[in-house]
């Protein structure tokens, strides 16, 4: 049997099928303005050394209906999580009798811009730290509370609440601090490493085939600027490291632990790949 012929025939059938469904194969040309007020940068020139020329938010790859949900902060169900995060922010926990607000007061002031600059170098831990781990550090060192386990307790809503304070602000990663450049390199290696039974890397879908369809799914650039993201599939907030693991699992590979060095490197690198896009937390995706 001629496998190549069979697969290319299938591709052709698939492509014409998708075309007949009216699915577009490029990012849509649309502007995201939340509540008619807050302009979100969903397209930006890539930083130097980037394999892509133009960066697009995943919002630009979604259908009219999904895009409309994110454009209205009331209709966005991810905001339920943000509001839950606000309650946690003001709730006293741990032996020191403190809440987040005890030290940081009004998050709208103290956390504005913070989420746009993570992950960043943590000299104490001698490695990069993200919002989730920064929350845990604060809980343990300052509140006398237990660290949240991955995706448990208030981790997702509180992370979403903190990142939401930077909504609309451009994503930046400071690679000049500590060994951030080394972690960026390691993350890049992970990004391009083919893995799993499907022998795919992150780049297979999100760089080389972004804009095309995998089954009926419109492949985005895999930007991370909207996490934690409200996914319609699960109908809840999904954390970045959960999505990393889900993506790797789908290549039929064993997936690394959340917040492991491998995934922290990947967070540094993929965040850099979205440099200049606006923070969208909580984004709405399929």
């Amino acid at each position: 049997m001629n496998k190549a012929l069979i697969t290319s025939t299938m591709l052709l059938t698939g492509a014409s099928l998708l075309a007949s469904l009216g699915l577009q194969a490029t990012p849509v040309d649309d502007a995201l303005v939340i509540d008619g007020e807050l302009e979100i940068t969903t397209q930006v020139k890539a930083p130097e050394g980037h394999a892509l020329k133009e960066l697009y938010s995943g919002w630009r790859y979604r259908t009219d209906e999904t895009r409309a949900i994110e454009a209205d902060s009331f209709e966005n169900p991810g905001m339920l999580g943000v509001e839950q995060g606000e309650e946690i922010w003001n709730t006293v926990e741990g032996s020191e009798g403190k809440s987040c607000a005890s030290c940081h007061d009004d998050a709208a002031v103290s956390m504005k811009g913070v989420g746009a600059q993570y992950p960043k170098w943590d000299a104490d831990g001698n490695k990069p730290i993200n919002i989730e781990l920064q929350i845990n550090k604060c809980r343990v060192e300052n509140m006398g509370a237990e660290a949240y386990k991955f995706d448990k307790g208030g981790q997702k809503p509180l992370t979403a609440y903190i990142k939401h304070q930077s909504i609309g602000m451009p994503v930046t990663v400071d690679l000049s601090q500590g060994d951030m450049q080394k972690w960026w390199e390691a993350g890049k290696e992970t990004y391009y490493l083919r893995t799993g039974q499907l022998n795919m890397s992150c780049a297979s879908c999100h760089e080389k085939n972004q804009g095309k369809y995998i089954r009926a799914d419109h492949l985005s650039q895999g930007q991370v600027n909207g996490f934690p993201t409200y996914r319609l599939k699960q109908n809840k907030l999904i954390s970045l490291h959960n999505r990393f693991r889900g993506c790797i699992r789908d290549t039929r590979a064993e997936f690394p632990a959340a917040f492991s060095d491998t995934l922290m490197g990947l967070e540094v690198y993929t965040t850099w790949r979205g440099t200049g896009l606006s923070v969208e937390t909580p984004a709405v995706r399929q």
């Binding site: 697969t7 698939g14 795919m200 089954r215």
Partner: peptide, 18 residues
């Protein structure tokens, strides 16, 4: 060619799935 195979198989599954 690896990539083509993967996408071909994926699209074939999509047809069945749809």
């Amino acid at each position: 060619s690896d990539r083509r195979k993967i996408l071909g198989a994926a699209v074939a599954t999509a047809v069945a799935g749809l």
